[in-house]
Simulated assay, not measured.
Amino acid sequence: MMVDQPEPDLARAARLLASPSRALMLKALCDGRPLAVTDLARVADVSVPTASVHLGQLAEAGLVRAERSGRNRYFHLAGPDVAAALEALAVIAPPDPTPVTTLRTHSRHSALRRSRTCYDHLAGSLGVALMYAFLDQGLLQREEGALASRSRADQPGSYGKQASYQLTPEGTERFAAFGIDVDGMTRGRRPIVRYCVDWSERRHHLAGALGAALAERYFHLGWLRYGVSPRVVHLTDTGKGGVMDTFAIEVLN
């Protein structure tokens, strides 16, 4: 006997995100790295016991997962779909009304828009620049009928709900030469190429197994380093040269 699956409880998800403290914790976890309860309490500006209660609620709803290392508990997002949902929500969310009054806050906001992680792949102007450079070079291509026109999709804010991308034979060859296990991706459950709508650029950045593998490779080669603030990453001088030499992409990041 087939049992009907219950419909998603959007109201419950909305209630969880309605708490500024929980929202701040989830945004910090979009860094992709597990964070301790004490770190998340500091991010949300609450006590450790209060943070534990919030994280318990998020875990019960399946948005985060906990793991223990010694005496410490660490939390991470339940998966890339949670990060993608948060990124999509950020696209339609109203701007934070809190005025930027310090140089530190201004610098952090600028850094987030320039280059950040979206769970396990790159976002911000850097992630978008790489995505569209791969399209220009024929390493990725839009599936036929995905968008009415190329020029329309390239305009900020015109990201096209029906967009879909795929890896080309040339892309398979180039990424494999760069050290990406493309064959292994085809055997995995995760789609090779997906996209997120970037909340700061209003355009697409590369997600999926390929986006994650590229970010991991960049870190391994020393092309990227983490910043002081959660999610912020910086392209190193080595990375700028590597992106130019390997993919002929000039990034002024």
Results as ranks from 00 to 15, higher is better:
M1C: 08
Q5I: 13
E7G: 08
L10W: 12
A11W: 00
A13Y: 10
A13L: 13
A14G: 06
R15T: 01
L16C: 02
P20R: 00
A23I: 09
L24N: 14
M25Y: 05
K27E: 15
A28D: 05
A28L: 10
C30D: 05
D31P: 03
A36R: 09
T38S: 11
L40Y: 03
D45C: 06
P49H: 10
H54R: 01
L55D: 08
L55Q: 05
Q57H: 12
L58E: 07
A59G: 12
L63C: 08
R65P: 02
A66T: 13
G70C: 08
N72C: 05
Y74S: 10
Y74C: 01
D81C: 15
A84H: 10
A85C: 01
L86W: 03
E87C: 09
E87Y: 05
E87V: 13
A90N: 04
A93H: 02
P94M: 02
T98M: 02
T98I: 03
P99D: 10
V100S: 00
V100I: 03
T101P: 00
T105L: 02
S107T: 13
A111E: 07
L112Y: 01
R113A: 14
T117Q: 03
H121Y: 12
G124Q: 00
G124I: 00
L126S: 01
G127Q: 05
V128Q: 02
A129Y: 06
Y132L: 04
A133C: 02
A133M: 02
F134C: 06
F134G: 03
L135Y: 08
D136I: 04
Q137F: 03
L139C: 10
L139S: 08
L139V: 02
L140P: 01
Q141I: 09
Q141L: 05
E143K: 11
E143H: 06
G145K: 02
L147A: 15
L147F: 14
A148D: 11
A148E: 11
S151R: 10
A153C: 15
D154W: 10
Q155K: 15
Q155N: 06
P156F: 11
S158G: 05
Y159Q: 08
Y159S: 13
K161C: 13
K161V: 15
Q162W: 09
Y165W: 14
L167C: 05
T168G: 03
P169G: 14
E170R: 04
G171I: 09
T172M: 07
R174Q: 09
R174L: 06
F175Q: 03
F175S: 09
A177H: 06
I180V: 12
D183E: 12
T186G: 11
T186K: 06
I192H: 08
Y195S: 15
V197P: 07
W199S: 13
E201R: 09
E201T: 11
R202P: 05
R202I: 04
H205C: 13
A207F: 12
A215S: 10
A215L: 07
A215F: 08
E216N: 15
E216P: 04
F219D: 04
R225C: 12
R225D: 07
Y226Q: 06
V228C: 03
V228N: 07
V228E: 07
V228A: 09
S229R: 07
S229W: 05
S229L: 02
R231E: 04
V232I: 10
V233D: 04
D237V: 01
D245F: 14
N253K: 06
